[in-house]
């Protein structure tokens, strides 16, 4: 039975509709105009226990709204939700002890005090004994590579250190369901890699179910086999990342470096020739024919070097959203 289920989940908001400038401001003050925004439209998904799922889409797609409904922070306008057997918006204490929400752009740590003070508050809130809290802090800080940072005021920490401390604070009660909303936002490449490694380790160690949103495709490709694509509040795709890439890009890019120049006609039977120079050729070969085509090319074209790659996933997904295609 799936751990998380949504059926026809929808959420609409009334937002202010104000024209710019002083005139617009005064008009808006006297008679406030609003319009209805459908942030999430009929989304139905199922997530099993222990799965790590990437939740992707452009800004304003409805990812965070969906996460907040799954946490019980906001009430859906329509549809049904079930997370670990609970109706999230009731926010029962037993449910809240099972979940956590990490938001890359918001923080729960007390700004003027060291993270350890915030951890002490969280330990009390979740009813952890001092010994148990200490044990978990040691365990998680080792996984996160945190040391002296825990006794330094939060305002003095770097963004990366702060994010790691935020993760520690959010996971102290050892939740089994993690909603991670852009946990690597603003971090440098090294810090991103460390946070990813930590998330992966946490998933392996505790069998946690993780729903992750991120605009860094590196987070998604390195952590999630399954992705859910959402655009304008509508579900676009729900399935394996690999299958998505295959669907979006039926060909693979092959770069050949030759020892002897070959005419362009030599390559046409294998696929589309994107680039042809004296010793350098770039081809797009259909995935189904890739192995046989490469074997023939190596045997017949005096190949010095060869490289096979996929187009960048960011580009593929960006093109998909721009094309305004119907859901996959």
């Amino acid at each position: 039975m799936p751990l998380i289920t949504t059926q026809n989940l929808s959420k609409s908001f009334l937002v202010g509709d104000k024209r710019p400038g002083l005139k617009g401001t005064l008009k808006h003050f006297v008679s406030r105009k609003t319009r209805l925004i459908n942030a999430v439209n009929n989304i139905s998904i199922e997530i099993d226990q222990g799965e790590m799922v990437g939740f992707i889409g452009p800004n304003g797609a409805g990812k965070t709204t969906t996460l907040k409904m799954l946490c019980g922070l906001i009430h859906p306008t329509n549809g049904h939700l079930n997370v670990a057997g609970y109706v999230p918006q009731r926010r029962q204490h037993d449910f809240l002890k099972k979940i956590t929400l990490v938001m890359g752009q918001k923080q729960q740590l007390i700004w003027d005090l060291p993270p350890l003070d915030s951890l002490k508050v969280n330990a009390a809130v979740y009813g952890l004994s001092n010994e148990e809290a200490q044990r978990r802090i040691e365990e998680l800080s080792e996984m996160l590579d945190l040391g002296d940072e825990l006794t330094c005021p939060v305002r003095k920490l770097s963004l990366g250190q702060r994010m790691k401390a935020e993760l520690l604070a959010s996971l102290l009660h050892r939740p089994s369901i993690l909603f991670l909303d852009e946990p690597t936002l603003g971090l440098d490449v090294n810090a991103q890699v460390r946070v990813r490694e930590f998330i992966s380790n946490y998933n392996n160690s505790f069998g946690a179910t993780i729903l992750l949103t991120s605009h860094y495709m590196g987070d998604i490709t390195s952590l999630c086999k399954r992705v859910i694509l959402i655009h304008d509040g509508t579900l676009f795709y729900d399935g394996m990342l690999e299958d998505l890439i295959t669907k979006l890009s039926p060909c693979r890019s092959v770069r050949l470096e030759l020892t002897e120049p070959q005419p362009v006609e030599r390559f046409l039977p294998f696929g589309e020739v994107v680039h042809h120079q004296k010793y350098l050729v770039r081809l797009l070969i259909p995935r189904a024919k890739l192995t046989s085509s490469l074997a023939t090319l190596i045997n017949s074209c005096s190949v010095k070097d060869l490289e096979v790659s996929d187009p960048p996933i960011e580009k593929l997904i960006g093109d998909l959203f721009k094309s305004g295609q119907t859901p996959l």
């Binding site: 003027d112 003070d117 915030s118 330990a123 009390a124 809130v125």
Partner: peptide, 26 residues
Amino acid sequence: ASEMSRLVRTILSFWSTSLATEFEYK
């Protein structure tokens, strides 16, 4: 009883961190 003790511990931890924050600024 255990819920009550959790509540008391929570409030005490609230106040101790609050005091600590106030004393950050002499």
